[in-house]
Amino acid sequence: MLSIKNLHASVNGEEILKGINLEIKAGEVHAIMGPNGSGKSTLSQVLAGNETFEVTEGEVTLNGDNLLELVTEERAREGVFLAFQYPVEIPGVSNLQFLRTAVNAMRKHRGEEEMNAAEFMKLAKDVSRQVDLDPAFLKRGVNEGFSGGEKKRNEIMQALLLQPKLAILDETDSGLDIDALQVVSNGVNALRADDRAILMVTHYQRLLNHIVPDYVHVLAGGKIVKSGGRELALELEERGYGWLGIDAVDTSN
């Protein structure tokens, strides 16, 4: 489904991604781990089309379509979803209005009829319960005054609403207590489907106890240096990154 070949990307002239190769098939969950500054978040942002980053080399295709030719919103409509590590606030715009605009933008792209306010309200209420959010929060401003946990649940709820082909989860577990982690993980597990690929970026093995990945990759210095199965994450937890020849904190980027 997702195919990344020799991907290089820089920001302000500094190369962060130095030749990433990755294949993710439909139905698979891949976890990307790695020390701080290894390029994990950059990879997420580049795949979603953040224009701050410049792709200098390589190719990325989603179901054979060249993603790099598409701007952010076009990629989103083709089914690329990014759950943000730090979702930004949009004051005064209700969550409900924001989500309905997004869902209708996707529907319009697929040639489907737009959902009216009442239909959407029903759908949004159902989905918000899946991530244990009080439907009353739908009326609040986007991420406005949300706690860290609410923001993360909100991101997963958006993925559930938008039903993407490729869901990229950027440090979805950071800042969550154990109960919130369970709720978010349940949401992600509900996302798992035969026709969907999931790419999880995380620091910690603990998330992978809740969402069991098919493959684990270690990113360091802008490259994938090791790939394996579920057991690789456990090994990393036990041994750190040192045995892979990586400094525990790689600050070169």
């Binding site: 979603a48 919103e73 989103a76 930004v88 209005q97 605009t101 401003g141 986007v142 958006q158 938008l162």
Partner: peptide
């Protein structure tokens, strides 16, 4: 960041600005 969030959810840049301004 606000623009990127909106666009990442499939919303046109112009519609995004208009939505943000309306919220304001």
């Amino acid at each position: 960041e606000q623009m990127f969030l909106c666009r990442q959810r499939g919303i046109d840049p112009e519609q995004a600005v208009s939505m943000i301004v309306n919220g304001f």
